Simulated scan of single mutants.
Amino acid sequence: MDVVVTSLEAWDTVWRRNQHLVAGLLRRDPTLRVLFVEPATDPLHAALGASQPRLGRGLRAGPALDGIRPEALWLLEPTKWLPRRVDRRVDERWARQVLRTARSLEMADPVLWVNDPTGSLLVEATTWRSLYDVTDDWTLAERSTAETERVIAQEQVLLARCDEVVVCSPALAVSKGAVREVTLVPNGVDTAAYLVAHDRPADLPDGAVAVYAGTLHGDRLDVDLCAATARALGGRGHLILVGPNALATEQRSRLESAGVVVLGARPSAEVPAYLQHADVLVVPHVVTPFTDSLDPIKLYEYQAAGGPVVSTPVAGFRDVVDERVVVASRETFASAVADALTHAGEAGLPLTDPDRVAGADWSRRVDQIVQVLASVHARGVNS
């Protein structure tokens, strides 16, 4: 079977849901081939901002991965030359490039796995069997009116026409399940990575540390709360942010001025070390309809690491029954982190406890996706 994945995230060293699931599938089935379509680069937007502009890398073989045969994984990184307001056919050009690339790989009748809603154009342009994997409700994110209307229109196509719809959170199961039948496949964790005691990362400051691990994005991270928390810690410890930085330059400046240590992205294989050596694990997220739609991967990672957690009342953390997790309001969050940092280690709890999330191992999620893909594939065979 061939699968074309339209992903919201690039295939890099920071592994997220798509990479864990796709790699797991490729290891299970040596005959499977995957074309993984990454987000397009945007040289013009980068040139107007603080980033270094570059062209997309186009089609290339995926990296060498244990247990996956060469040429089973292909990556496609397109280039977005102009904004949609200037080039109204930018998404159509993207879809045609994906189709040409699939044909060049002799993928005549692949299963389409849509994570980026732009994949709706491929649903409309082909007879490919299709799966819509909803990991974020972008219809609820704060965007321009034009962008919101575009995403809503694309999702309407996906919910109406895809053979299967998978959601990652109970909230999404309710909202999307009101429209059609969906399958809940939550996020997970690589429990094996937490069975090993890792050395303290050299770039962690000396002394007590409160650590956040995840993409630094204004849709999720409460920048003002992070700054207030760092100031509340004073000389007692540091607030550390580990993860890809998608913040505006002004937001990062505010964080660093308040004393927040922004480390940036680290390979997923290194993240367990940061979590194991955190005195407190924190989730300073905004609470919005968008964040309420999420199933935070960090919930499972934090539980596997085993340390105390302080979180704002966001989905996942506010619902979990766990004596290590303290849910604090925005008003009390900073003091709760300071208090947890002061008393870290007094409870005598184990520092690493991956058995607590064994049922959420990515291998279990791959089992579920295998069943969904088998259902999608069977529709073509039986039609």
Rank of each mutant, 00 (worst) to 15 (best):
V98R: 03
L122M: 13
A61D: 15
E92Q: 15
T31I: 07
T139S: 13
A213I: 00
F290R: 01
G359V: 14
H45D: 13
L195I: 04
D109I: 00
P205K: 08
S383E: 10
A72Y: 10
R266T: 03
P201V: 07
W15V: 03
L221Q: 01
A374M: 04
R330S: 14
D163S: 08
L99R: 15
A47C: 01
L294H: 10
R200A: 09
F36E: 05
T6F: 01
A95N: 05
A208S: 14
V196K: 09
Y212M: 06
V337H: 11
T135E: 10
D295A: 05
V211E: 00
T291Y: 01
L76I: 04
H20N: 09
A248L: 15
V209L: 07
Y274K: 11
T139M: 12
V271T: 12
R252I: 12
R33F: 08
T139W: 11
V286T: 14
L204D: 08
Y274E: 09
S120L: 06
Q52E: 14
R180Y: 13
Y212L: 07
A40L: 06
D87M: 14
R27A: 13
S375D: 12
G345S: 08
V326G: 02
V280K: 12
E149I: 00
G177K: 09
V151R: 14
V370W: 11
S293R: 01
V376T: 09
N115P: 04
V325Y: 00
V185Q: 06
A374W: 03
D87H: 09
L263R: 15
S335W: 04
H238Y: 01
P272L: 04
R318H: 02
Y300V: 06
L158I: 09
G207D: 10
K80E: 15
A334V: 08
Y194F: 15
E164N: 06
Q303R: 15
R150P: 02
G234L: 05
E106T: 05
D136N: 12
A197W: 01
A265W: 09
V376A: 07
L239K: 08
S120Y: 08
L255D: 04
P63V: 13
P117W: 02
Y300F: 13
V381C: 08
V309M: 02
E301H: 12
G207F: 06
E301I: 01
L158V: 04
L44Y: 05
